[in-house]
């Protein structure tokens, strides 16, 4: 199971209405504003469904719960289907990642080589799921500015272990949330497109409730629909430990 989908969820979930005045914002300031918006809540809890749609239109659905605190602590739990029920991921800072599989009864550490793998067969990679630190990992340039949007091109920094050659991000000026991100592979071809819609204000934070990630090369799509989003519950740090990871 990959952790990437989580970061996408995170990115989608956290929406603070940071009403930035457009004007002459520098690209890095725009990206910082996006990141601040994404990371605004102190913590969040969400249940979501992920529907995988292949090129024939066949669908498979997974249900998950995600607990997140700050930028570095996430606990993902699969609730269905039955064959993955109870499988959990604990993601901590510095790419520290653990998996709990009920069938084996123990927590196992996962090295960061899985970062670019698809998360449980979805179109999100582990890294996509965890990606909220755009400022740290990318250098932005402003490609275009319209009345309602900034269009940023993000090129991975040399030291960041990003598997994309670049991203193109459309940022809604009203919410400072990305509503479309294009992911380009290493050869420079368009690989995936993520869109975020159905933005609702939850606990004061604007939160997209419908996210789609489409792999245009494989003609495969993952649709994420969020339910039961709750922010700022003062989730204790101890919930993000191996002790709680295996408590299922």
């Amino acid at each position: 199971m990959s952790v990437r989908s989580q970061s996408v969820v995170l990115a989608v979930l956290v929406l603070v209405a940071v009403t930035q005045t457009a004007g002459a914002m520098a690209p890095m300031d725009i990206l910082q504003a996006v990141e601040d918006t994404l990371n605004a809540p102190a913590d969040r809890e969400v249940h979501l469904s992920m529907t995988l749609v292949d090129d024939q239109g066949d669908m498979r659905t997974r249900e998950l719960s995600i607990l997140q605190k700050g930028e570095d602590k996430r606990l993902i739990r699969f609730l269905s289907p039955a064959d993955v029920r109870g499988v959990g991921f604990l993601v901590l800072e510095d790419d520290l990642m653990y998996i709990y599989m009920p069938a084996f009864g123990k927590v196992r550490r996962i090295a960061s080589h899985v970062k670019n793998e698809n998360f449980m067969g979805t179109d999100f990679t582990y890294d996509d799921m965890a990606q909220t630190d755009y400022v740290k990992n990318y250098t932005p340039t402003l490609k275009e500015e319209t009345a309602g949007r900034y269009v940023l091109e993000l090129v991975p920094n040399e030291k960041s272990e990003i598997d994309y050659s670049r991203l193109v991000m459309w940022v809604d000026k009203a919410t400072m949330l990305p509503d479309r991100i294009e992911f380009y592979d290493r050869p420079g071809l368009l690989l995936k497109v993520m869109t975020q819609t159905d933005v609702r204000r939850i606990d004061g934070y604007l939160t997209p409730h419908h996210i789609e990630m489409e792999d245009v090369q494989d003609k495969h799509k993952t649709i994420m629909d969020l339910e039961d989003v709750v922010h700022d519950q003062s989730i204790p740090d101890q919930q993000f430990t191996q002790r709680y990871l295996k408590r299922f």
Binding site: R108, R109, I110, A111, S112, H113, K115
Partner: peptide, 11 residues
């Protein structure tokens, strides 16, 4: 022990 050397998982 379990950990990683670069991206390689080791135990």
């Amino acid at each position: 022990i379990a950990g990683a050397v670069e991206d390689v998982g080791i135990w």
